[in-house]
């Protein structure tokens, strides 16, 4: 007998040989996402008097490689809400499955009517809790999401939630590069909630298309094929294979300081 309680009742090396404990460690330490892998770039959205317009291009990049060119980053949730995902595409697909389960559960418990459906603000609150929980567990879902739709008060609703669980709402919103390039263009049109009431669907669609164009000009991880959705009380119109129109690259001539053109 010795003084190591841990040793009591254990096979001794000098009699049984060295004990191979390698099999005891079966799993590696759990790993969490520390950085996104395949990513989508900006999502832009703006409110108008009867609803919300939201758009995102169809590109999924692998670093600087344009890896997948037909990834739909807008997702319809029941008849009142569209979500736009920026950031990690696999996390987007996970959230998509999560929301699908929620939708199935909701339809199962009260299928027959629209009134008790989850509306845009319900969904945004739910997503924000999911995102905040995951960041608190140090296992974030690497996305910045825009939630566009109609609220339970039948008003246009637009809000955002990111990988930290930060939430905010504004007449116009954009994620990623869009926050720098598209937001100023949209804020000119809708500086405050009051201005939203004077904006028609056509105006909103036009400014969103203009923003997508500007982003394509300046964001290297963007593409000219995009999806656009209009959400109003009448329902959701979603077009997933749009192409940017009326591009003008004339401004490029005047850009100095790149490539062969030094001054």
């Amino acid at each position: 007998m010795n003084h190591f309680p841990q040793a009591w009742g254990r096979p001794r090396d000098d009699i049984y040989g060295h004990y191979n404990s390698s099999y005891l460690q079966t799993a590696n330490p759990t790993q969490h996402t520390q950085s996104p892998v395949v990513t989508g770039t900006s999502v832009v959205a703006i409110k108008y008097k009867d609803g919300v317009v939201i758009a995102a291009d169809n590109l999924a990049s692998y670093g600087s490689l344009a890896r997948f060119t037909d990834v739909k980053r807008l997702r319809k949730f029941n008849s009142s809400t569209v979500l736009g995902f920026g950031g990690d595409v696999s996390d987007m697909q996970y959230l998509d499955r999560l929301l699908n389960d929620l939708d199935v559960k909701e339809n199962y418990s009260h299928a027959d009517d629209e009134a008790s459906q989850l509306s845009a603000n319900n969904l945004h609150t739910y997503l924000s809790k999911v995102m905040y929980k995951r960041r608190t567990d140090f296992n974030p879902l690497w996305n910045h999401i825009l939630v566009a739709g109609i609220s339970s008060e039948s008003e246009p609703f637009l809000a955002s939630v990111d990988l930290l669980g930060t939430t905010f709402s504004s007449p116009s919103l954009a994620t990623g590069y869009g926050a720098h390039l598209a937001q100023p263009i949209m804020r000119k049109l809708v500086p405050d909630e009051e201005a939203v009431k004077g904006i028609s669907k056509e105006q909103a669609v036009d400014v969103v298309k203009e923003c997508m164009k500007v982003l394509f000009y300046r964001d290297a991880r963007s593409m000219d094929g995009y999806s656009i959705a209009v959400i109003s009380k009448e329902g959701i119109e979603i077009k997933e294979n749009e192409k940017l129109e009326n591009q003008s690259w004339q401004f490029a001539e005047r850009i100095r300081g790149y490539g062969t053109q030094v001054n």
Partner: peptide, 19 residues
């Protein structure tokens, strides 16, 4: 000799968190 340690011999590698 025994085939286990009474205590960890060295601190585990510091985990790199970019998040």
């Amino acid at each position: 000799g025994y085939s286990f340690n009474t205590a960890p011999t060295s601190a585990s590698e510091p985990r790199q968190h970019s998040f």
